[in-house]
Amino acid sequence: MIALLKRYWQVLRRPSTHYSLGFLTVGGFIGGVLFWGGFNTALELTNTEQFCIGCHEMRDNVYQELQPTIHFTNRSGVRAKCSDCHVPHEWTSKIARKMQASKEVWGKVFGTIDTPEKFEAMRLPLAMNEWRRLKANNSLECRNCHDFPYMDFTRQSPRARDAHSTALARGERTCIDCHVGIAHRLPDLRGLDEMIAVHGVDAVPAVLLGGAAEVAQ
């Protein structure tokens, strides 16, 4: 075995006798482009709505809930797909997120969320993962479509204007602090206190602290 590896190593190390340096450079470049492109295409494929709802856990729960919301159909005809909110667009964070997402794929494989009941039970920790991410990156995914500098307060409702021109403008709050449950039903918040003890308060949007926890007892 070792001997075999050694032989291949020798082959790899030996300078090329058959191909010109130019061919190797250009060929390597084209190969690289093809690989890169293929990799990104595969990555893009995992970003499509079809892929995300390929498993019944997602199709029967979160996808159903997304459909009546404004992010599915609206007067402007712009749809937010799963990946618009759940996969960061910047490349490095995208890869980091994919690696994290494979945990959810594991979840499916090992059956932790394969029934509606199990999904419901896991829902709060799953939501807290999303909240933590959006709080940490200042709601980057929301801002890919909605950008604060482009908001016209004179066209917003009074409640929206009051909130956006104060806590949001001052940077004290980020979108997810106030806009939870905009795409799916919220999990049962009765478990929130125990979850805060485990995951910390960083993963909890401001709007869920106080009142909501009060009713959820």
């Binding site: 039903r185 049962d188 918040l189 009142g211 959820a216």
Partner: peptide
């Protein structure tokens, strides 16, 4: 599970 109205109308909110 959730009472959205209380996110704003609760005493503490």
């Amino acid at each position: 599970h959730v009472n959205r109205c209380m996110f704003c109308h609760a005493r503490t909110r």
